[in-house]
Amino acid sequence: MKKRKIIIDCDPGIDDALAILLALNSEELEILGLTVTSGNVPARIGAKNALKTLQICGRLDIPVYVGEELPLKRELVTAQDTHGDDGMGENFYEEVEGTILDNGVDFIIDTLKNNKDVSIIALGPLTNIAKALMKDKEAFANLDEFVSMGGTFRIHGNCSPVAEFNYWVDPEGADYVYKHLPKKIHMVGLDVTRKIVLTPNIIEFINRLDKEKSKFITEITRFYIDFHWDQEGIIGCVINDPLAVAYFIDRNLCKGFDSYVEVVHDGIAIGQSIVDSFDFYKNKPNAHVLTHTDEKTFMKMFLKRIFKGYEDVIDNIEGVI
């Protein structure tokens, strides 16, 4: 099997950690590096969380780079109320002995320049990508594919009535990427990710499987579950980011349509992704906007990859998922 080379640009973050776990356990992917920006937590905290997640899978050989620590123009607003002060559900794990490198933006540029088959899966605000584009747009001519977890189409936002958090944190960065990236963006927005819910039933189930990974997942999602109950009345927690990784691997998991998209910079609708589904602007589509997903198929894929050796058991848990 030829592995697909990827950079994961992220802001770990509980669901980022779960997405990284999925990527690490997917044989189709070769992770060249993790680049971290500020979003769920400040970038330096997120980089430490990236190391912790890599350690769980014994993959500290994958480099972690800190990129931009502030949005292009806005003051940074984090989601530590959602993910905990440490970004990992208030578990305050011991720091992992590993190297955190600087110059994440340069790593993105250099990697694209030296390879013609690298894709980027962006799980956080698009600040690093925007900065890299501003610095060297020509490098992105080598980009294979670009997947962004962010935005909304017909569903309400998660940090305002209309905005998804990643684009809300740095709307100028998100809009710049949509308007300047030479490749069409696969927009994995809340319309599909809201359907991906890690329920108490699933958590109870995985605790019967691999103890180390299930302990980590249970610990980091406890705070997240409490938040979702208090804020949205959901029993469980929405895990947005893993769907972006899963969709990159298997396009059959989601359906959508091509459209022109731009992101609002300010005002009451700051961070909203404007999807021109009726082609009012007559602009060339710059995005493939996802609208439907098969959440049960996703969840089985997610669990079977992280908990290898239990595939038969997972295939027969219709009452759990």
Rank of each mutant, 00 (worst) to 15 (best):
R208A: 03
M187W: 01
N283L: 05
G236Q: 06
I206V: 10
L24C: 09
L209S: 05
I8G: 01
I234G: 01
L198M: 15
N114F: 06
V162Y: 00
N283H: 13
P161S: 01
I220Y: 15
D230F: 06
E204P: 00
Y260P: 05
K211Y: 09
A50N: 02
G271W: 10
E172I: 04
G267I: 06
G67C: 09
A269E: 12
F302I: 07
R74L: 10
D312K: 15
S160N: 07
S38H: 06
L198E: 13
I108C: 02
A50E: 08
E94S: 09
R222I: 06
I14G: 04
K48A: 10
A163N: 08
D11P: 00
T193D: 01
V261L: 11
K179N: 15
G267E: 08
A174S: 14
T82E: 13
F205E: 07
Y260D: 03
C254D: 01
E30D: 13
S273W: 05
F302C: 10
R59K: 15
K131N: 15
F302E: 10
K215S: 15
N158E: 14
P63C: 03
K255D: 12
G84H: 10
A132V: 11
C159G: 02
A79C: 14
T221G: 07
V188G: 00
A19K: 14
S148I: 14
I109E: 02
D279S: 08
I109L: 14
Y176M: 11
D15L: 00
V105A: 14
D16P: 00
V238W: 01
N40S: 14
D16F: 12
W229K: 13
G104A: 05
T111R: 09
K179D: 08
I314L: 11
K2G: 05
R59W: 10
H156C: 01
I45S: 07
N286F: 13
D312Y: 12
G271P: 03
L198W: 09
F107L: 10
I56P: 07
R154C: 05
A139P: 07
I268G: 03
D266T: 09
K304G: 06
I317E: 14
N40F: 13
K255S: 09
G84A: 00
M149F: 05
A50P: 09
E295I: 06
K308M: 11
L123R: 04
